[in-house]
């Protein structure tokens, strides 16, 4: 059975939907994400729909379900990259996708999730696992960045 890949990045799960979604595939994605959130302890789910040229009520329901389910599992979901024509159509279709947060771009989506997780973490007394935050997975700078380069035998 064909499945949509779910990638782990820091404490986030990333999904980019690149195929015209058959209903079964959408349902599999829901199940896969639930499992992966629990297995990885992910705090955020980012779903890129920029390749989707339509979102109908089935896919809309899938996105709402993923958002609701991830919330129960203590993770936030952000949907990024919705095309303008899709947004216009969804409004007329009457679909409001309660609980689904959206961002225009991947960068904004990551920022939104980073901010979200940070706010939640700052409530915690133990902040030892801050290295997991999406905001801190950028460039490896400093001495550890150069340590790898040293040993080419010439």
């Amino acid at each position: 059975m064909e499945r949509i890949p779910v990638l782990k990045l820091g404490n986030l799960l990333l999904v980019s939907i690149q195929v015209d979604l058959e209903d079964r595939l959408a349902l599999n994605l829901q199940d896969d994400l639930a499992e992966r959130i629990v297995a990885t302890g992910a705090r955020g789910v980012l779903i890129d729909i920029s390749a989707l040229d339509i979102v109908d009520s089935f896919v809309g329901r899938m996105l709402s379900t993923i958002a609701a389910m991830s919330k129960l599992l203590d993770a936030e979901t952000v949907v990024v990259g919705m095309r303008p024509a899709v947004a216009i159509t969804l409004v007329e279709l009457g679909l409001d996708m309660p609980g689904v947060r959206t961002a225009l771009t991947l960068e904004h989506g990551l920022a939104l999730l980073g901010a979200e997780v940070r706010v939640r973490r700052s409530d915690d007394t133990d902040s030892a696992d801050r290295a997991d935050l999406p905001g801190s997975i950028e460039e490896p700078t400093g001495p550890s960045g150069t340590a790898v380069a040293g040993t080419v035998v010439g």
Binding site: I54, D56, R83, V86, T89, L93
Partner: peptide, 17 residues
């Protein structure tokens, strides 16, 4: 137009299902 294509395809998807 692109928006009208999108509306028609979305309607067709609903009705086909």
């Amino acid at each position: 137009s692109l928006v009208d294509q999108t509306k028609m395809v979305t309607a067709a998807s609903e009705l086909a299902r």
